[in-house]
Simulated assay, not measured.
Amino acid sequence: MHRITVIGGGFAGLTAAITAAEAGAGVTVHEAHHTLGGRARTAEEPYRTNDGPHTLYSGGPHWSWLRQRDLLGPLAPIPPLEAARLRLRHHGVLRRTPPFAMLKLLRQGLQQAPADTDFLSWATRIAGEEGARAAAHYSAVALFHHDPGALSAAFVQERLRRATRLPPAAHHPRGGWASVIDRMAARAWNLGVRMETLSRVDTLPADGPVIVATSLDAARRLLGDTSLTWTGGRTALIDLAVRTRRGDAFAVSDLDAPGWLERFTAQDRSLAPAGEQLIQGQIPIAPHESKGDGTARAEQLLDLAFEGWRERVTWRRESVANGRTGAVDLPGTSWRDRPAVDRGDGVYLVGDQVAAPGVLSEVSFNSALTAVSLALGRHSLDLKRA
Protein backbone atom coordinates (compact mmCIF):
# COMPACT_ATOMS: atom_id res chain seq x y z
CA MET A 1 0.00 0.00 0.00
CA HIS A 2 1.25 3.49 -0.84
CA ARG A 3 2.18 5.69 2.10
CA ILE A 4 1.88 9.42 1.46
CA THR A 5 2.96 12.27 3.71
CA VAL A 6 1.15 15.58 3.39
CA ILE A 7 2.82 18.63 4.91
CA GLY A 8 0.18 21.29 5.60
CA GLY A 9 -3.41 20.84 6.76
CA GLY A 10 -5.17 23.62 4.88
CA PHE A 11 -7.67 23.31 2.04
CA ALA A 12 -5.04 22.01 -0.40
CA GLY A 13 -3.53 19.54 2.06
CA LEU A 14 -6.90 18.13 3.13
CA THR A 15 -8.00 17.81 -0.52
CA ALA A 16 -4.83 15.85 -1.26
CA ALA A 17 -5.24 13.69 1.86
CA ILE A 18 -8.88 12.79 1.10
CA THR A 19 -8.15 12.05 -2.55
CA ALA A 20 -5.18 9.82 -1.72
CA ALA A 21 -7.06 7.97 1.03
CA GLU A 22 -10.03 7.38 -1.27
CA ALA A 23 -7.58 5.79 -3.72
CA GLY A 24 -6.40 3.38 -1.02
CA ALA A 25 -3.24 5.08 0.19
CA GLY A 26 -2.21 5.44 3.80
CA VAL A 27 -1.90 9.15 4.58
CA THR A 28 -0.35 11.20 7.36
CA VAL A 29 -0.96 14.95 7.52
CA HIS A 30 1.44 17.20 9.45
CA GLU A 31 0.09 20.62 10.43
CA ALA A 32 2.34 23.09 12.27
CA HIS A 33 -0.60 25.00 13.76
CA HIS A 34 -2.74 23.65 16.58
CA THR A 35 -5.79 23.53 14.28
CA LEU A 36 -6.32 22.55 10.67
CA GLY A 37 -7.41 24.94 7.97
CA GLY A 38 -4.49 27.17 7.00
CA ARG A 39 -5.82 30.39 5.50
CA ALA A 40 -9.28 28.81 5.50
CA ARG A 41 -9.55 29.07 9.28
CA THR A 42 -12.46 31.02 10.74
CA ALA A 43 -12.07 32.90 14.01
CA GLU A 44 -14.04 31.86 17.05
CA GLU A 45 -17.13 33.74 18.19
CA PRO A 46 -18.26 36.43 18.69
CA TYR A 47 -16.87 37.63 15.32
CA ARG A 48 -16.39 34.75 12.92
CA THR A 49 -13.97 36.36 10.50
CA ASN A 50 -11.90 34.66 7.84
CA ASP A 51 -8.31 35.51 6.98
CA GLY A 52 -9.52 38.16 4.57
CA PRO A 53 -12.69 37.94 2.45
CA HIS A 54 -13.29 34.35 1.32
CA THR A 55 -15.72 32.92 -1.20
CA LEU A 56 -16.34 29.80 -3.26
CA TYR A 57 -17.02 30.23 -6.96
CA SER A 58 -19.49 27.73 -8.36
CA GLY A 59 -18.81 26.04 -11.67
CA GLY A 60 -15.29 24.85 -10.94
CA PRO A 61 -14.28 21.21 -10.37
CA HIS A 62 -13.84 21.76 -6.64
CA TRP A 63 -17.53 22.71 -6.39
CA SER A 64 -18.82 19.35 -7.68
CA TRP A 65 -16.11 17.46 -5.74
CA LEU A 66 -17.22 19.04 -2.46
CA ARG A 67 -20.90 18.51 -3.23
CA GLN A 68 -20.47 14.85 -4.17
CA ARG A 69 -18.90 14.19 -0.77
CA ASP A 70 -21.39 16.33 1.17
CA LEU A 71 -18.53 18.58 2.27
CA LEU A 72 -19.91 21.88 1.04
CA GLY A 73 -22.68 22.06 3.60
CA PRO A 74 -25.37 24.74 3.77
CA LEU A 75 -24.68 27.98 1.94
CA ALA A 76 -25.65 31.48 3.00
CA PRO A 77 -27.59 32.99 0.09
CA ILE A 78 -27.61 36.73 -0.49
CA PRO A 79 -31.16 38.06 0.01
CA PRO A 80 -32.35 39.86 -3.14
CA LEU A 81 -32.95 43.09 -1.25
CA GLU A 82 -29.38 42.99 0.05
CA ALA A 83 -27.93 42.21 -3.38
CA ALA A 84 -29.64 45.36 -4.65
CA ARG A 85 -27.50 47.34 -2.20
CA LEU A 86 -24.26 46.72 -4.12
CA ARG A 87 -22.65 50.11 -4.66
CA LEU A 88 -19.85 51.22 -6.98
CA ARG A 89 -17.62 54.21 -6.30
CA HIS A 90 -16.87 56.05 -9.52
CA HIS A 91 -15.43 59.56 -9.75
CA GLY A 92 -15.67 59.80 -5.98
CA VAL A 93 -19.40 59.15 -5.60
CA LEU A 94 -21.49 56.02 -5.09
CA ARG A 95 -23.64 54.73 -7.91
CA ARG A 96 -25.78 51.67 -8.51
CA THR A 97 -24.60 50.77 -12.00
CA PRO A 98 -21.19 50.56 -13.65
CA PRO A 99 -20.17 53.03 -16.36
CA PHE A 100 -21.56 52.02 -19.74
CA ALA A 101 -18.09 51.65 -21.26
CA MET A 102 -17.21 48.98 -18.69
CA LEU A 103 -20.21 46.89 -19.82
CA LYS A 104 -18.56 46.47 -23.21
CA LEU A 105 -16.02 44.21 -21.53
CA LEU A 106 -18.76 42.04 -20.01
CA ARG A 107 -20.84 41.32 -23.10
CA GLN A 108 -21.41 37.78 -24.32
CA GLY A 109 -19.26 36.66 -27.22
CA LEU A 110 -16.39 39.01 -26.49
CA GLN A 111 -13.10 37.73 -27.88
CA GLN A 112 -10.71 35.82 -25.66
CA ALA A 113 -8.11 38.23 -24.29
CA PRO A 114 -4.46 37.48 -25.12
CA ALA A 115 -2.04 36.34 -22.44
CA ASP A 116 0.92 38.32 -23.79
CA THR A 117 -0.72 41.77 -23.46
CA ASP A 118 -1.54 43.69 -20.30
CA PHE A 119 -5.24 43.99 -19.49
CA LEU A 120 -5.41 47.79 -19.56
CA SER A 121 -3.97 48.04 -23.07
CA TRP A 122 -6.24 45.32 -24.43
CA ALA A 123 -9.38 46.54 -22.68
CA THR A 124 -8.77 50.18 -23.67
CA ARG A 125 -9.00 49.23 -27.34
CA ILE A 126 -12.47 47.80 -26.66
CA ALA A 127 -13.98 50.09 -24.02
CA GLY A 128 -11.76 53.15 -23.85
CA GLU A 129 -9.43 53.97 -20.98
CA GLU A 130 -12.14 54.90 -18.48
CA GLY A 131 -14.09 51.67 -19.00
CA ALA A 132 -10.89 49.63 -18.98
CA ARG A 133 -9.70 51.10 -15.67
CA ALA A 134 -13.10 50.62 -14.05
CA ALA A 135 -13.16 46.96 -15.13
CA ALA A 136 -9.60 46.40 -13.95
CA HIS A 137 -10.35 47.89 -10.55
CA TYR A 138 -13.57 45.87 -10.18
CA SER A 139 -11.65 42.65 -10.90
CA ALA A 140 -9.54 43.30 -7.80
CA VAL A 141 -12.26 41.52 -5.78
CA ALA A 142 -10.74 38.28 -7.13
CA LEU A 143 -7.15 39.47 -7.64
CA PHE A 144 -5.99 41.26 -4.45
CA HIS A 145 -3.47 43.19 -6.58
CA HIS A 146 -2.79 46.94 -6.57
CA ASP A 147 -2.55 47.26 -10.38
CA PRO A 148 -4.78 44.71 -12.15
CA GLY A 149 -4.46 46.59 -15.43
CA ALA A 150 -0.76 45.66 -15.59
CA LEU A 151 -1.46 41.92 -15.40
CA SER A 152 -2.04 39.46 -18.24
CA ALA A 153 -5.21 40.36 -20.13
CA ALA A 154 -6.29 36.70 -20.29
CA PHE A 155 -5.72 36.27 -16.56
CA VAL A 156 -7.76 39.34 -15.59
CA GLN A 157 -10.55 38.69 -18.09
CA GLU A 158 -11.30 35.24 -16.64
CA ARG A 159 -11.61 36.64 -13.14
CA LEU A 160 -13.66 39.61 -14.26
CA ARG A 161 -16.14 37.26 -15.92
CA ARG A 162 -16.43 35.07 -12.84
CA ALA A 163 -16.82 38.06 -10.49
CA THR A 164 -19.59 39.70 -12.55
CA ARG A 165 -21.58 36.62 -13.52
CA LEU A 166 -25.35 36.65 -12.99
CA PRO A 167 -26.67 34.92 -11.01
CA PRO A 168 -23.59 35.43 -8.82
CA ALA A 169 -20.99 32.65 -8.94
CA ALA A 170 -19.64 33.60 -5.49
CA HIS A 171 -21.05 31.61 -2.56
CA HIS A 172 -20.40 31.63 1.18
CA PRO A 173 -20.53 28.54 3.42
CA ARG A 174 -22.76 29.23 6.40
CA GLY A 175 -20.63 29.74 9.50
CA GLY A 176 -17.51 30.60 7.54
CA TRP A 177 -14.88 28.48 5.82
CA ALA A 178 -14.17 26.58 9.02
CA SER A 179 -17.42 24.69 8.51
CA VAL A 180 -16.07 23.27 5.24
CA ILE A 181 -12.69 22.48 6.80
CA ASP A 182 -14.36 20.68 9.71
CA ARG A 183 -16.31 18.46 7.31
CA MET A 184 -13.19 17.77 5.26
CA ALA A 185 -11.24 16.85 8.40
CA ALA A 186 -14.02 14.51 9.53
CA ARG A 187 -14.05 12.76 6.15
CA ALA A 188 -10.28 12.40 6.21
CA TRP A 189 -10.45 10.94 9.70
CA ASN A 190 -13.14 8.44 8.66
CA LEU A 191 -10.94 7.38 5.75
CA GLY A 192 -8.14 6.56 8.15
CA VAL A 193 -5.98 9.62 7.56
CA ARG A 194 -3.63 10.27 10.45
CA MET A 195 -3.56 13.99 11.29
CA GLU A 196 -0.77 15.39 13.45
CA THR A 197 -1.26 18.99 14.63
CA LEU A 198 1.49 21.07 16.24
CA SER A 199 3.76 19.00 14.02
CA ARG A 200 6.21 21.24 12.20
CA VAL A 201 8.29 19.48 9.55
CA ASP A 202 11.78 20.89 8.95
CA THR A 203 13.22 17.94 7.02
CA LEU A 204 11.52 15.90 4.32
CA PRO A 205 10.77 12.29 5.35
CA ALA A 206 12.95 9.76 3.61
CA ASP A 207 10.24 7.27 2.67
CA GLY A 208 7.24 7.51 0.40
CA PRO A 209 5.88 10.35 -1.73
CA VAL A 210 5.62 13.73 -0.01
CA ILE A 211 3.05 16.40 -0.87
CA VAL A 212 4.05 19.87 0.31
CA ALA A 213 0.85 21.87 0.87
CA THR A 214 2.27 25.02 2.44
CA SER A 215 2.72 28.60 1.32
CA LEU A 216 5.28 29.06 -1.42
CA ASP A 217 7.60 30.84 1.02
CA ALA A 218 7.47 27.93 3.47
CA ALA A 219 7.96 25.41 0.65
CA ARG A 220 11.01 27.32 -0.59
CA ARG A 221 12.60 27.11 2.84
CA LEU A 222 11.67 23.47 3.39
CA LEU A 223 12.88 22.29 -0.01
CA GLY A 224 15.84 24.66 -0.19
CA ASP A 225 14.71 25.64 -3.68
CA THR A 226 15.18 29.33 -4.48
CA SER A 227 13.24 28.95 -7.75
CA LEU A 228 9.96 28.62 -5.85
CA THR A 229 8.76 32.17 -6.34
CA TRP A 230 5.84 33.78 -8.17
CA THR A 231 4.15 37.15 -8.31
CA GLY A 232 1.37 37.72 -5.79
CA GLY A 233 -0.68 40.53 -4.33
CA ARG A 234 -0.22 42.65 -1.22
CA THR A 235 -3.43 43.67 0.46
CA ALA A 236 -4.56 45.62 3.50
CA LEU A 237 -7.32 43.71 5.29
CA ILE A 238 -9.87 45.31 7.56
CA ASP A 239 -12.45 43.55 9.75
CA LEU A 240 -15.07 45.73 11.36
CA ALA A 241 -18.09 45.09 13.56
CA VAL A 242 -20.65 47.90 13.75
CA ARG A 243 -24.06 48.27 15.32
CA THR A 244 -26.80 47.56 12.83
CA ARG A 245 -28.32 50.43 10.91
CA ARG A 246 -30.91 50.20 8.17
CA GLY A 247 -29.71 51.43 4.81
CA ASP A 248 -26.12 50.21 4.98
CA ALA A 249 -24.70 49.00 1.68
CA PHE A 250 -24.27 45.27 1.10
CA ALA A 251 -20.95 45.66 -0.69
CA VAL A 252 -18.88 48.47 -2.17
CA SER A 253 -16.56 48.08 -5.15
CA ASP A 254 -14.13 50.90 -5.78
CA LEU A 255 -13.87 51.65 -9.51
CA ASP A 256 -11.52 54.59 -8.91
CA ALA A 257 -8.86 52.30 -7.40
CA PRO A 258 -8.75 48.60 -6.48
CA GLY A 259 -10.71 47.85 -3.31
CA TRP A 260 -13.74 46.00 -1.96
CA LEU A 261 -15.85 46.08 1.21
CA GLU A 262 -18.60 43.57 1.99
CA ARG A 263 -21.09 43.23 4.85
CA PHE A 264 -20.85 39.47 5.35
CA THR A 265 -23.68 39.34 7.88
CA ALA A 266 -26.04 40.36 5.07
CA GLN A 267 -26.14 36.69 4.08
CA ASP A 268 -25.05 34.98 7.31
CA ARG A 269 -26.28 36.43 10.60
CA SER A 270 -24.32 33.82 12.58
CA LEU A 271 -21.04 35.65 11.96
CA ALA A 272 -21.66 38.39 14.55
CA PRO A 273 -23.77 38.92 17.68
CA ALA A 274 -27.37 40.07 17.36
CA GLY A 275 -27.64 43.76 16.60
CA GLU A 276 -24.20 43.93 14.98
CA GLN A 277 -22.93 43.67 11.42
CA LEU A 278 -19.59 42.25 10.29
CA ILE A 279 -17.84 44.10 7.46
CA GLN A 280 -14.73 42.68 5.84
CA GLY A 281 -12.68 44.49 3.25
CA GLN A 282 -9.55 44.23 1.20
CA ILE A 283 -7.65 47.18 -0.27
CA PRO A 284 -4.69 46.17 -2.46
CA ILE A 285 -1.57 48.24 -1.74
CA ALA A 286 1.55 48.84 -3.81
CA PRO A 287 4.99 47.71 -2.56
CA HIS A 288 5.81 51.23 -1.35
CA GLU A 289 2.49 51.69 0.49
CA SER A 290 1.79 50.90 4.13
CA LYS A 291 -1.08 49.21 5.90
CA GLY A 292 -2.17 52.68 6.97
CA ASP A 293 -2.48 53.77 3.33
CA GLY A 294 -4.81 50.83 2.66
CA THR A 295 -6.96 51.32 5.73
CA ALA A 296 -7.28 55.04 4.96
CA ARG A 297 -8.77 54.16 1.57
CA ALA A 298 -11.05 51.62 3.24
CA GLU A 299 -12.29 54.34 5.59
CA GLN A 300 -13.11 56.55 2.60
CA LEU A 301 -15.36 53.80 1.26
CA LEU A 302 -16.89 53.32 4.70
CA ASP A 303 -17.66 57.04 4.92
CA LEU A 304 -19.57 56.83 1.64
CA ALA A 305 -21.53 53.63 2.23
CA PHE A 306 -21.93 53.19 6.01
CA GLU A 307 -23.25 56.38 7.52
CA GLY A 308 -22.03 57.04 11.05
CA TRP A 309 -19.89 53.90 11.10
CA ARG A 310 -17.23 55.44 13.34
CA GLU A 311 -19.71 55.92 16.19
CA ARG A 312 -21.13 52.43 15.67
CA VAL A 313 -17.88 50.44 15.80
CA THR A 314 -17.82 47.66 18.42
CA TRP A 315 -14.71 45.79 17.21
CA ARG A 316 -11.96 46.34 14.67
CA ARG A 317 -8.94 44.47 13.31
CA GLU A 318 -6.40 45.31 10.61
CA SER A 319 -3.66 43.28 8.94
CA VAL A 320 -1.69 42.89 5.73
CA ALA A 321 -1.73 39.83 3.46
CA ASN A 322 1.55 39.71 1.54
CA GLY A 323 1.68 37.01 -1.14
CA ARG A 324 -1.07 35.05 0.63
CA THR A 325 -3.93 35.60 -1.80
CA GLY A 326 -2.94 33.43 -4.74
CA ALA A 327 -0.81 33.85 -7.82
CA VAL A 328 -1.18 36.61 -10.40
CA ASP A 329 0.14 36.27 -13.95
CA LEU A 330 2.08 39.04 -15.67
CA PRO A 331 1.81 39.54 -19.45
CA GLY A 332 3.46 36.72 -21.34
CA THR A 333 2.87 34.16 -18.57
CA SER A 334 0.09 31.79 -17.56
CA TRP A 335 -0.55 29.23 -14.85
CA ARG A 336 1.65 26.77 -16.79
CA ASP A 337 4.69 28.95 -16.07
CA ARG A 338 4.28 28.86 -12.28
CA PRO A 339 6.30 26.46 -10.09
CA ALA A 340 5.62 22.89 -11.22
CA VAL A 341 3.68 20.45 -9.08
CA ASP A 342 6.23 17.66 -9.63
CA ARG A 343 9.50 18.65 -7.92
CA GLY A 344 11.20 15.32 -8.58
CA ASP A 345 12.32 12.53 -6.22
CA GLY A 346 8.75 11.88 -5.08
CA VAL A 347 8.11 15.43 -3.89
CA TYR A 348 4.99 17.30 -5.07
CA LEU A 349 3.98 20.90 -4.49
CA VAL A 350 0.38 22.09 -4.13
CA GLY A 351 -1.27 25.39 -3.27
CA ASP A 352 -2.67 28.52 -4.87
CA GLN A 353 0.59 29.70 -6.48
CA VAL A 354 1.60 26.62 -8.46
CA ALA A 355 1.12 25.36 -12.00
CA ALA A 356 -2.56 24.48 -11.98
CA PRO A 357 -5.57 26.18 -13.58
CA GLY A 358 -8.44 27.84 -11.77
CA VAL A 359 -9.42 30.89 -9.74
CA LEU A 360 -8.28 31.37 -6.12
CA SER A 361 -8.95 28.15 -4.12
CA GLU A 362 -9.55 26.22 -7.36
CA VAL A 363 -5.80 26.35 -8.00
CA SER A 364 -5.16 24.65 -4.65
CA PHE A 365 -7.76 22.01 -5.45
CA ASN A 366 -6.54 21.24 -8.96
CA SER A 367 -2.91 21.08 -7.89
CA ALA A 368 -3.82 18.72 -5.03
CA LEU A 369 -5.55 16.26 -7.37
CA THR A 370 -2.66 16.48 -9.84
CA ALA A 371 -0.13 15.76 -7.08
CA VAL A 372 -2.03 12.71 -5.84
CA SER A 373 -2.41 11.40 -9.38
CA LEU A 374 1.33 11.66 -9.96
CA ALA A 375 2.27 10.31 -6.53
CA LEU A 376 0.12 7.20 -6.96
CA GLY A 377 0.90 6.74 -10.64
CA ARG A 378 -2.82 6.95 -11.38
CA HIS A 379 -2.75 9.02 -14.54
CA SER A 380 -6.37 8.06 -15.15
CA LEU A 381 -7.43 10.37 -12.30
CA ASP A 382 -9.54 12.85 -14.27
CA LEU A 383 -9.89 16.35 -12.81
CA LYS A 384 -13.11 16.95 -14.74
CA ARG A 385 -14.63 13.68 -13.63
CA ALA A 386 -13.60 14.36 -10.03
Rank of each mutant, 00 (worst) to 15 (best):
M1L: 15
I4A: 08
I4Q: 01
T5C: 15
T5K: 02
I7E: 00
F11N: 03
T15L: 06
T19I: 06
A25S: 06
A40H: 05
R41W: 14
E44R: 10
E44I: 07
E45T: 09
P46A: 11
P46F: 14
Y47D: 00
H54W: 11
G59L: 05
W65E: 10
R67H: 06
L75G: 01
P77G: 09
P79Q: 01
A83H: 04
A83F: 11
A84H: 09
A84D: 15
H90P: 04
L94K: 12
L94E: 08
F100I: 00
M102H: 05
L103G: 09
L103Q: 15
G109P: 10
D116Y: 04
F119M: 06
S121P: 02
G128C: 08
V141A: 13
V141E: 11
H146Q: 01
G149W: 05
A154K: 00
F155W: 09
F155D: 14
R161E: 05
P167Y: 03
P168T: 13
A170K: 13
W177A: 03
S179D: 04
V180L: 12
I181E: 10
A185K: 07
A185M: 14
M195L: 12
E196F: 05
D202P: 00
D202A: 10
P205G: 14
A213Q: 04
T214I: 07
S215R: 01
A218V: 02
A218W: 02
R220D: 11
R220N: 09
D225W: 07
W230F: 01
G233V: 05
A236V: 03
L240Y: 10
A241M: 11
R243W: 07
G247H: 05
F250R: 11
A251C: 12
D254W: 15
D254S: 15
A257H: 12
P258Y: 14
W260T: 07
L261F: 14
D268H: 07
A274D: 09
Q277E: 11
Q280V: 09
Q280F: 13
G281N: 11
P284Q: 06
P284L: 04
I285F: 02
A286S: 13
P287R: 00
K291M: 10
R297N: 13
E299S: 04
A305I: 11
A305M: 14
E307K: 10
R310Y: 13
V313K: 06
R316N: 02
R316E: 12
R316T: 12
R316D: 08
E318I: 05
G326A: 09
V328P: 08
L330E: 15
P331M: 02
W335A: 12
W335M: 02
R336Q: 00
R336H: 04
P339D: 14
P339H: 12
V341Q: 15
V341D: 13
D342F: 02
R343L: 11
Y348R: 03
V350D: 07
V354R: 04
A355L: 05
A355C: 02
N366S: 11
T370M: 03
L374E: 15
A375Y: 01
L383P: 03
L383Y: 06
